[in-house]
Design a protein around this nucleic acid. Structure first.
Length: 359
RNA sequence: GCUGAGAUGCCGGAGUGGACAAUCGGAGCAGUCUGUAAAACUGCCGCCCGAAAGGGCUACCCAGGUUCGAAUCCUGGUCUCAGCA
């Protein structure tokens, strides 16, 4: 039984690779795949308005349940009429389960305690303690009303032993089952594949998650410190097990050079902080790399960031101007940079899509 | 002109006899960033040698002096600011 109003169709398959084009249908509209999914952790893709996101041809973005739960609080979002109404975004939204924060908050400080039943978080705002379980994560995501939910999982850091990864994976699988059991069909739910960099665990996980009645597959536990070769290998192991008719989301990946690789593996959507974060640091995509617009050499440079780029930033402003804005820390800098980087990402993907159509 | 305050590295600004090449900001320079505690973080930041440890040199307005030792104390300059005439 599929989630209400949710379906996926593959429209084209590449003959050269596992790449495919498709459409994810959701109650808030369609998502053409492959697609880059910008991250808007706290119900905002930093510095952009929803209208700007739409103009960039973004159809789906990523919000974090843990962050929404802490602030503004789910009661506020419910009062607003759900996440979509709260943010004034009428296109689809995908929410994270909170699973990644186990990894992320534990990395720097001990803000997290993991047990088999669930996880105790200490709020990064005020230190107050909160418990997330598969059941509460599903409940919270339902309260948010996002279109795609992710099962509660345990993301292992790079360097864990096989034994640790196995223990964590067992937990993730139990949590996957529990997530599914209590979730309902009002929204789509993706199961999360883990297993670190171990072939047997990854394959086991891919097989298991594929066997359950999820609406889609999420691959987690990558881009946590392993090499790009290792990441590609994980995709090699895992992707053949996935049902063709289900969409696959790769969690947290999306550096420029990752894109062709992940698409060739048959990934349909992928989210990543990198393009928007780099933008805010002044790193702007150009010629398949990023230029640091803060550098002095750009001070008198009257060219656009990228000559051929048709984004709002490149059409209207020079490198010199964007350089200036960053140097004096004007807020417009972050916005113009973010617009450019998302546009750049989307342009690359559109290009790859058309390539898949042709082959 | 009188009275008072002060002059510190690119800038702001600590330090008021040894632990000072000099706290801390800012600027500058370099680097990091992949399900965002990120408009963040890290390093360098007098000159020379060294990968580093470390060593050498020149330094806290100028000129003298006291002292084993001075950015710090004394004398005399120069300049700046505030108040009063």
């Amino acid at each position: 039984m599929a989630a209400e109003g949710f379906s996926f169709e593959v429209t084209t398959r590449s003959k050269k690779s596992k790449a495919r084009c498709g459409i994810i249908h959701t109650p808030h509209g369609d998502i053409e795949t492959p697609a880059f999914v910008p991250v808007g952790t706290q119900a905002s893709v930093k510095s952009l308005t929803p209208d700007e996101l739409k103009d960039l041809d973004t159809h789906l973005f990523f919000v974090n349940t843990y962050h929404m739960y802490l602030r503004p609080g789910l009661d506020v979002i419910q009062k607003a009429g759900g996440l979509h109404a709260f943010m004034n975004w009428d296109r689809p939204v995908i929410t994270d389960s909170g699973g990644f924060q186990i990894f992320s908050l534990a990395k720097k400080q001990e803000l997290v305690k993991i047990g088999d039943d669930g996880v105790q978080f200490q709020s990064h705002w005020d230190g107050s303690k909160h418990i997330f379980t598969p059941e509460t994560s599903m409940e919270y995501q339902n309260m948010l009303g996002s279109d795609i939910h992710i099962a509660f999982d345990d993301c292992t850091p790079y360097g864990v032993t096989h034994k640790q990864a196995e223990k964590s994976l067992t937990r993730t699988h139990e949590w996957a089952k529990r997530s599914l059991d209590c979730h309902g069909t009002k929204h789509a739910l993706y199961g999360s594949v883990q297993g670190s960099v171990y072939e047997d665990l990854r394959k086991k996980s891919a097989k298991y998650i594929s066997s359950l009645n999820f609406d889609g597959i999420a691959i987690g536990g990558v881009s946590v410190g392993e090499s790009k070769a290792e990441m590609a290998q994980v995709l090699d192991w895992v992707c053949p097990f996935f049902p063709e008719e289900k969409p696959r989301h790769l969690l947290g990946v999306g550096e420029l050079d990752d894109i062709p690789v992940l698409i060739a593996h048959g990934i349909d959507t992928f989210d990543c902080v990198q393009p928007t974060r780099l933008a805010r640091m002044g790193y702007l995509y150009a010629d398949n790399t990023a230029i640091d617009i803060n550098k002095k050499e750009f001070a008198p440079d009257m060219n656009p960031i990228v000559d051929s780029c048709t984004c709002y930033t490149c059409v209207n402003f020079s490198r010199a101007y964007v350089h200036h804005l960053f140097r004096v820390r004007e807020l417009l800098a972050y916005r113009l940079a973010t617009i450019h980087n998302i546009h750049y990402m989307n342009t690359i993907i559109t290009h790859i899509r058309s390539h898949i159509y042709e082959t």
